[in-house]
Amino acid sequence: MTTRSISSSGLYRAIQSRRNRGLGGLYIVVVAFLLLYVWLFPGIVSIGGFSKFTQNWFPLALVTMAQALLMLNGGITLSVGPLVSLGAVIAATSMGGFAGTWGGIAAVAAIGLGIGAITGIIVAHLRLPAIIVTLAGSFIITGIALLILPRPGGFIPGWFSDLLAGNTPVAFCLLLVAIAGWKLFMATPAGLGMYAAGENPVGAFRSGVSVERVKVAAFAISGLLAALAGLFVAAQTGSGDPLIGNPFTLNSIAAAVLGGVGFLGGKGTMRGAICGSLLLSVMINVMFFLGFPPVAQYVAQGLIIVGAVAIPELTAQRRKK
């Protein structure tokens, strides 16, 4: 019998370590791929190499968080990619102009939060399927991005690009901040309520969780994260591109599913999703070093999504028989 060997003060840590143990297999796979990568490309174990590697990972990690957040709450979003584009476009058009660098950052954050919240209100209060609402939303957001900046261009201050995407691991530190922010959120009643509402909305409602408000908050935070990923991409490329975010929609779903997040809500963990994004990022890099053309990653993504859903489903079906 498992007794309460832990002291009551260690409850939080015990819950966390148990979640980590559940992901042991995933951690091993991620470490194996990382080692393979180091072996293929030893340059990664330098400040510069590590910085570049984490800069490639960072936007994917952010959009994966944006996606996983909603999937854990029982939703999904197809407007992640367009939001990344919009974030990049707003950054590239506002930073050089009236708003200045900080004003630009604030504008990106505000737009991301706002669009996310509006989507959330439509989904939660009108009870419409998130997948179709965000599909329609993705077209509208793409259109807005194209209106603001019809073709790649705009301006990002050089120092800002150097800060985020230079030879220092600033991106990695920002990722740690984002993860810390998530952990903080998940330690609030609202965060736990969001998780509970994903799997059992009726039960959560009866337990006093304001299910609709939590859903709107989830969409808003998701929008914020996606737009900030766009800000980073703009800094990385030094300009804005109204279509640059498109691959992120499927990428974010692939990474979340790879990390064990289920389509039906309440299944999986954010740390799993982040590991999934790291795994996907390393896979893409490894494929690149093995000489696959860049487009091969699209092929891989399609296979990964279907595989990540199919393998558990098939094993479950076989077990039933």
Partner: peptide, 16 residues
């Protein structure tokens, strides 16, 4: 696989 996701994955796959 939810059909929308399945067809989206297929589109990306074919594109690559």
């Amino acid at each position: 696989v939810p059909p929308i996701i399945m067809t989206l994955a297929m589109a990306t796959f074919l594109q690559g």
